[in-house]
């Protein structure tokens, strides 16, 4: 349960830190760290505008999206401590339950009948499909390395000892960070601050959402960041006791947020056509991790 609260706390600050990092790099003062949360709270209190084209799908989609991410959050462990639920193959459930949210956000975008939102939906469907193999192969190699099948057991048994494991941990961090960027439609893939709908992915899908629903969707985005941040934390904490891990959790989350802010400040968005190759390249990085795991286990003769 601890991790649940930790992720919630991290989610409150995460987006604010990214925005602050970006504004510092661009020489502005920027809004307060809590501004994104204040925005969401304001949205929760606002009324909504619904398109006359939409149906029940549009009404339930943000709810399902939010619930699926909360469900995914319940599976995430905290080093050696279990998440709310933990079982063999929980990372499969993690990925698939996120897919449920994606399914609904895609069809809710198509429910509006807007050409822009259809465009975003099409891209989201393709990119999330391409990002998934990387996650599965990453988890597969970690499972192979540790001999366990659940998040908690894998992370508890993950010892960083030799040079190769360092390399693997760094590669794994990179893969998870990139998956987080894709899942949240951030910079190298998508530019949330662009002013042109034609070049958006996630932002353009929620053009018609307003009020409570928009608040839910934004909250879900913050939670997703914190969840992937927590996964990265898990790569490093291992069997260290609580006293040290909780500060470590926040430090690593903080660093991840700053890293994302930095990436967003200094990188330009890829051309849409090149995104697919980039995302699929992540799979080859996770294949590298897999071969690294084979090396460590001495499966190569």
């Amino acid at each position: 349960m601890l991790i649940f609260i930790l992720i919630l706390i991290a989610a409150i600050f995460f987006s604010g830190i990214i925005i602050r990092t970006k504004s510092i790099f661009s020489g502005r003062k920027g809004p307060g760290i809590l501004q994104p949360i204040k925005d969401v709270i304001r949205l929760f209190r606002k009324g909504s505008v619904y398109s006359q084209t939409t149906s029940f799908v549009f009404q339930i989609a943000p709810t399902v999206y939010f619930a699926s991410v909360i469900m995914a959050m319940l599976v995430v462990p905290f080093g050696q401590y279990k998440g709310f639920i933990s079982f063999n193959g929980d990372f499969i459930f993690f990925a698939y339950v996120l897919a449920l949210g994606k399914f609904f956000s895609i069809i809710s975008a198509m429910d509006t009948g807007s050409s822009f939102e259809g465009m975003g939906a099409s891209r989201e469907a393709l990119y999330s499909m391409l990002a998934e193999p990387a996650f599965f192969i990453l988890m597969g190699s970690l499972a192979l390395l540790t001999g366990h099948l659940s998040f908690q057991e894998i992370f508890a048994a993950l010892h960083i000892g030799s040079y190769i494991t360092y390399a693997l941990a760094i590669l794994a961090t990179f893969v998870i960070l990139m998956i987080a960027m894709i899942e949240n439609s951030r910079m190298p893939i998508d530019d949330p601050k662009t002013h042109l709908e034609l070049t958006m992915i996630h932002e353009v899908m929620i053009l018609d959402n307003s009020g409570f629903d928009l608040g839910l969707i934004l909250t879900t985005g913050y939670l997703k960041f914190a969840i992937y941040g927590a996964l990265i934390v898990n790569l490093f904490v291992g069997v260290i006791p609580y006293g040290y891990t909780i500060p470590m959790f926040f430090i690593i989350q903080f660093l991840v947020a700053i890293a994302i802010g930095t990436i967003e400040s200094f990188m330009a968005r890829f051309r849409m056509g090149h995104n697919a190759q980039f995302i699929f390249a992540l799979t080859s990085v996770s294949l590298l991790i897999f071969f690294g795991a084979l090396l460590i286990l001495g499966k190569f003769i």
Partner: peptide
Amino acid sequence: VFSIRKIVTRKQKVVIEPTW
């Protein structure tokens, strides 16, 4: 989550407009 949404949005104003 859906029932929370239902309760919170019960008194809020809902407008039906064409798609943006």
